[in-house]
């Protein structure tokens, strides 16, 4: 039906790889942060909350530029990682994953946080009276009950990551086969005289992926309520 060319496939597969890696790496951090924000009171909590949400409101090009300054070859963190661990972000697909991860992080954390906040803390107390140490309470009660929210967060984060454009193109540019995701491929195609058909195909692919993710997130949210009511 859609006659997708090899070059377009490259962009689609790269987008999928970038978004999947970004989501998987961000998830443990997201869960930890969601728990911290939902369950702990500490000094600087509102500042941390604001910083997490910053990529949502900052111009993406600013986030991308900040990433370039920090994680670029000569950046403070980027230089250290490149010299000591051999991890390079600049102009690599890993950099695209980092940009997508940062940009999608607020969306990923939010459902996780909400689902942890919705859990009755008295259930965690009950687990404690049955002999569960705090980390066991987390893994046997809190996390299983929050699981639908965790999955919803992952799906939303994934959907955001796969469509990310501004920060990615600023940080790692638009190199076919290395950093050219669906979004940047569409951007390039629109600027080419006869690229409309190819751009159109990629647009359809993006819409299908985004819609699928939203429907999945909705389904997980529905599961969450069922789970909390024990049916």
């Amino acid at each position: 039906m859609l006659d997708i060319s090899p070059a377009e496939w490259t962009a689609i597969l790269l987008s999928l790889r970038v978004a999947i890696i970004a989501t998987l790496v961000a998830t443990p951090f997201g869960i930890a942060l969601a728990w911290l924000l939902a369950r702990r009171d500490f000094w600087g909590k509102s500042v941390l909350d604001a910083v997490v949400h910053l990529p949502l409101v900052l111009p993406p090009v600013v986030t991308g530029y900040l990433l370039l300054l920090t994680f670029g070859r000569r950046g403070l963190v980027g230089g250290f990682l490149a010299d000591h661990l051999g991890i390079v972000f600049a102009f690599r697909w890993t950099g695209a994953a980092l940009a997508c991860g940062v940009m999608s992080f607020p969306l990923l954390v939010r459902p996780m946080r909400l689902s942890i906040e919705a859990i009755d803390r008295r259930l965690e107390q009950a687990a404690e009276t049955l002999g569960a140490a705090p980390f066991k309470v987390f893994f046997t009660v809190t996390l299983p009950l929050a699981l639908p929210g965790v999955l919803a967060g992952m799906v939303l984060g994934f959907a955001k990551a796969i469509g990310e454009f501004g920060a990615t193109i600023t940080f790692v540019s638009n190199i076919p086969g290395e950093t050219q995701t669906i979004s940047s491929a569409i951007y390039s195609l629109i600027q080419t005289p006869d690229g409309d058909a190819a751009a159109g195909r990629l647009v359809i692919v993006s819409i299908v992926l985004a819609l699928g993710a939203l429907i999945a997130a909705e389904w997980f949210a529905h599961r969450a309520t069922q789970r909390l009511h024990g049916n």
Partner: peptide, 30 residues
């Protein structure tokens, strides 16, 4: 969690994600 007590609350507080058998076994496992 180290007191080795049992506590029955007014509002049962069974774990909604576990079935009855798993709820019963929870304390033994922990």
């Amino acid at each position: 969690w180290r007191r080795r007590i049992g506590y029955v609350f007014q509002d049962a507080r069974l774990f909604p994600h576990l079935n009855v058998a798993q709820n019963l076994d929870y304390g033994r496992r922990m």
